[in-house]
Amino acid sequence: MAVAGSSQRASSQFLKRLRSSLPWYPFIIINALVFVLFNLVPWFSMFRYSVLKTDLLSTREFVGLDHFVRMLTDAKLHKAMLNTAWFTLMYIPLLVVASLGVAILVNRPLRGMKAFRAIYFLPNITSVAVLALIFRRFLSPRPDGPLNFLIGLVGIPPQKWLIDVYQAMPSIVGISLWEAFGYFMVIWLAGLQAIPNELYDAAKVDGADGWRLHRYVTIPLLRPTAAFIIVIATIGALQVFGSIFILTGGGPVNATTTVVYQIYNEAFNFGRFGYASALSILFFLIILIIALIQSRYLRFGDDVY
């Protein structure tokens, strides 16, 4: 009897809990469905296609690991990987420093700071296509191009920017920084505002002021934020595509062809969807390994207090 009663109680509690949580399930189900349809299914398809020679339309031939072997001798892929690494190595340090610097500046309790924050965030909500078109004009190689005119004022000769094999990638880095730093500034701001004032007060009592307050309080306490930003920004940097697609088409002479751009080329310009899928798997693994290493060494997710 007691067992039956306890089982009935458990069952009625379960039903009660189910009833109380019922309104949440539609939200979860819809998101889960979207995730499965648009992330998980394509993800598994990628593995399936990676062992097929297919243009998705007319041909479908099993080739085993041929695509992965081909990557070893694909000079265009090697160039694209170097370009992607070069972009990431330039982009991440500059992004971290610039967005943190601006976040510290706009975190001051002064009039008009909200307006500055909004202004700095604006490029992030502007279409990358629009930004790219504006920058294409701004970086004109003509001596009277806007940027060449500005650097001419301080005596620097006109540069070719996007047309130059060596300057094209740094130019893309600059444009990408302009687009993204506002977003990361907001994340830094959240981190800065989560630091209790008491810690600054205590540091001041200990004799810290100015830069030393940032050195001994702000920066150490921003470590979790920094870890998050570095991991997320690195993943984003490795996947750079939009600005390159619109601005340079991977040129000049493949100087800005990144891995994602190469994947797009293989798939949509050459119809090699199998090879493009294999490249995507390789790239997924590279990003995964980099993110895991970063998470481990940056102690992503650890508490600091």
Binding site: R137, S140, P141, L162, I163, L247, G249, G251, P252
Partner: peptide
């Protein structure tokens, strides 16, 4: 010829003067 036309998207040359 304008040098900026030397590079650009495969499908369009948007944003150029």
């Amino acid at each position: 010829v304008p040098l900026e036309y030397a590079i650009g998207s495969v499908d369009e040359q948007g944003g150029l003067p």
